[in-house]
């Protein structure tokens, strides 16, 4: 049954054209709208392909053999792509190739999306300033996008994706080139965005466990587990070869459990766990 309040993926399989092996095999997953979903897995797991399907790049711009069904709330990337795209922000793995190349300045690059949405010039002014402040690009607004460092380019790519205030944000490894402060600030900032569904692919398992409401774990194109970070991390199998957060490593070694064989995966859970131990 389609539910307007959740993301649901139903028996999704995909094979790229000119390729004989399927990249995704019979994936089914759900998550409520307006939550943060972390997508984890190693290379060849199908994370990028899944992002492309969620954003409608597949099948609207890249061809292949797609079966199954995807619903993002009331919309579907296969059936109502233009309407969905209007409400979606996307950040590619390679931020440099995401830029229009038609802007002399960072400000113009960010304004590009607003112009496309038909936003009035006075409003553009306001929104660009606001988003540049959020992503610490204010000092770079008048500079050429070509002069930015890798981390700044990633922040610019994110700025262009969020400036239109999308209801759905799809981020494919958006922090790989950021320095630690930039990355920490970015993950903290994700938690304060309201009324937005965020799907984020990342190798930063520690940060994901701090902020994600749910994790989807892909191994070789199959969704092997989904649930809260606490569930997914505690149920990892060694042959999936997934790294664990430091909180979990620490708690496990010190045997600070949250009850039956369940170890905390983020700082809050660890705090709660230690508090309970002291009070009993």
């Amino acid at each position: 049954m389609a539910n307007n309040q959740q993301i649901s993926i139903n028996d999704l399989s995909f094979t790229y054209r000119h390729d004989s092996n399927a990249v995704l095999h019979h994936i089914s997953a759900t998550a409520p709208l307006n939550s943060i979903i972390g997508i984890i897995g190693n290379h060849h797991a199908g994370k990028t392909t899944l992002c492309r399907i969620l954003a409608g790049i597949i099948p609207n711009m890249m061809a292949g053999d797609l079966s199954g069904d995807v619903q993002l709330g009331p919309l579907s990337p296969t059936q109502n792509w233009p309407a969905l795209n209007q409400q979606t922000g996307f950040v590619l793995q390679d931020p440099a190739s995401q830029l229009s190349g038609l802007a002399d300045t960072v400000a113009d690059e960010i304004a590009f999306d607003l112009l496309n949405h038909g936003v009035a010039n006075t409003e553009i002014q306001h929104r660009v300033t606001e988003v540049a402040r959020q992503l610490q690009l204010t000092g770079q607004l008048q500079r050429s996008p070509n002069s930015l460092s890798g981390g700044q380019l990633q922040r610019l790519a994110i700025a262009t994706a969020i400036v239109t205030k999308p209801a759905i944000l799809i981020l494919d490894d958006p922090t790989s080139e950021m320095d630690p402060q930039g990355r920490t600030e970015f993950f903290n900032w994700l938690t304060i965005i309201e009324k937005t569904t965020i799907l984020i692919v990342s190798n930063e398992i520690d940060d994901l466990c701090e902020i994600a409401d749910r994790l989807w774990l892909l191994v070789d194109g199959e969704l092997v587990n989904q649930g809260t970070p606490l569930e997914v991390i505690n149920q990892l199998k060694p042959d999936w070869q997934i790294g664990t957060p430091q909180v979990y490593q620490l708690a496990r070694s010190m045997n600070w459990s949250l009850g039956t064989d369940l170890f905390p995966v983020n700082v809050n859970q660890l705090r709660g766990c230690l508090h309970d131990r002291h009070s009993t």
């Binding site: 630690p180 402060q181 920490t184 520690d206 430091q246 909180v247 490593q249 620490l250 070694s253 010190m254 700082v267 660890l270 705090r271 230690l274």
Partner: peptide
């Protein structure tokens, strides 16, 4: 930034000594 384990331990346990990894703390 210090290694993450240092922030975790100082946040949760109030211990601000140097730890390089969870294994180091253990």
């Amino acid at each position: 930034l210090p290694p993450r384990i240092m922030s975790i331990v100082s946040d949760v346990l109030g211990d601000s000594r140097v730890y390089l990894t969870p294994a180091d703390y253990v």
